[in-house]
Design a binder for these strands. Structure first.
Length: 424
RNA sequence: GGGGGGAUACCAAAGCGGUCAAAUGGGGCAGACUGUAAAUCUGUUGACUUAUGUCUUCGCAGGUUCGAAUCCUGCUCCCCCCA
């Protein structure tokens, strides 16, 4: 058995761990789980740490289990509205669950003898009534114990609802159920989950005198103090319809040097030696950003695929590389299309192309690109306007003569302020 | 209740009868440099058929004047001091 705990340790992925976990996992092929909230139809990169935990777990010869919180998800968000909510929710939850499962399939092996699997706690909570729950579960955990948890303590001042207070029991029971029925011995989670996980361990001990383990990962932070995983456009999702492969790739490319050295351990499966080598090479020629490239490539390829990675890379080189007009003329249509997911787009009706240059770029595009003709003229005077990678120095450019694939135009204000124009 | 000060463009702040579309700084945008970084330097920063032209803009509403951000009257809001 490969040493799972050791693997996580050098990657900086352990925040808290119960005693003798390492020893247990070295001697037993075991099952472990993490709970995920099905409230969104996609995972985002904030979930990636947890996913990677399971990836390493499986690679070390254990069985990863993904718990989709169909039941807990319903409790978690009581802010519904209409009467039919329950039905809608159920459909939506199943839909979300399927989408999330297919995202896990990219990371984990769902076949073989330590195959990954997905469970939903709705299965065991559906027919579990309140009285039964109180008798069989609530009885064993004291309020004193529950109150001692940081997650609860921190909320006592500001207020905590009974529902949220109970959450640790529900989650604890999940662990117990999986322990009992699926031979799950360990639960993983973010550091904020420590308390909830321990409630599960406690429940297992009290109900059956059983042994179980817990391991949490640290909260990922950025060196500049900002939140990891957020961009101006919000979350970075794994679903390509919510975050395009290009934007996903770019997120990793733009990580700072300092963060990249930490992230490459956390988010890739590269070995310690490979990573050490990358860091040495990176520090020799930091401008090449070797680590960021390695990081972006590996993760983008797993989450999307090789082809989409390549398109994202080509798109990036169009937007940021030393890219000349000639190169632009030879671009594949696929890459051109991908530009529409990379930069803000503006559509324009084909008959508007009859207007003069300045009118097209202001009025005909609802002043989205240039707020006024003066601004446009100023931009040209400052040598700041390019179309299709070609600097524009005069105002009698004919747009309709320069469309790519008869409908696309890449407009550039300055170096990195792009607008993609689609004629329809 | 009494006395004093203020309201200017994205923000801060000068201007106190024509030369004011309004100094200066910050921010924004662009150029050079660069690692799709940081710093620095340069240009630019109300709109319009780019014009030593017109229009809109200096809290709001009126007025004086050939001419007002600038003077007068009223109003609204802010700050400070004394009770």
């Amino acid at each position: 058995m490969k040493n799972f705990v050791e693997e996580l340790k050098w990657r900086g992925l352990i925040h808290d761990i119960t005693p003798s976990t390492e020893e247990f996992l070295l001697n037993n092929s075991s099952s472990g789980y993490i709970g995920f909230d099905p409230t969104a139809d996609s995972l985002h990169i904030g979930n990636l740490v947890q996913i990677m935990t399971l990836v390493h777990f499986q690679k070390c010869g254990h069985k990863p289990i993904i718990l989709i919180g169909g039941a807990t998800g319903m409790i978690g968000d009581p802010s519904g509205k209409s009467k039919e909510r329950k039905f809608l929710d159920e459909k939506k939850l199943i839909d979300n669950q399927n989408k999330i499962r297919s995202q896990f399939e990219k990371f984990l092996d769902f076949s073989g003898n330590n195959s990954a699997s997905v469970v939903n706690n709705k299965t065991w909570f559906e027919n579990f009534n309140l009285l039964e729950f109180l008798r069989n579960v609530g009885k064993h955990i004291s309020v004193n114990y529950m109150m001692a948890k940081d997650s609860v303590k921190n909320r006592l001042e500001t207020g905590i609802s009974f529902t949220e207070f109970t959450y640790q029991l529900i989650q604890g029971y999940d662990f117990y159920w999986l322990w009992k029925n699926k031979d799950v011995k360990i639960q993983f989670g973010g550091s904020d989950q420590w308390g909830n996980i321990l409630t599960g361990n406690e429940l297992i001990r009290r109900l059956e005198g059983g042994e179980s383990y817990a391991l949490t990962t640290p909260l990922i932070t950025k060196s500049d103090g900002g939140k990891f995983g957020k961009t101006e456009d919000g979350n970075v999702w794994l679903d390509e319809n919510k975050t395009s492969p290009y934007k996903f790739y770019q997120f990793w490319i733009n990580v700072s040097d300092e963060d990249a050295k930490v992230f490459i351990k956390i988010f890739t499966q590269k070995s310690n030696n490979e990573i050490k080598k990358l860091i040495v090479n990176h520090d020799k020629e930091p401008h090449l950003r070797i680590i960021q490239n390695a990081l972006a490539e590996e993760i983008t390829e797993i989450v999307h695929d090789k082809e989409k990675l390549n398109i994202a890379k080509s798109t990036s080189s169009v937007l940021f590389g030393k890219f000349l007009k000639e190169d632009f003329d030879n671009l594949e249509e696929k890459v051109m299309e991908s530009l529409s997911t990379a930069v803000p787009c503006v559509t324009i009706k084909r008959d508007n192309l009859l207007n003069d240059f300045k009118t097209i770029l202001t009025e005909s595009t609802n002043f989205e690109i240039f707020k006024s003709k003066s601004e446009l003229v100023r931009m040209i005077k400052n040598n700041g306007l390019s179309i299709n990678k070609d600097k524009i120095n005069n105002e009698d450019y004919i747009i309709s003569d320069n469309l790519k694939f008869n409908k696309y135009l890449l407009l550039q204000k300055g170096k990195k302020n792009y607008t993609f124009i689609i004629v329809e």
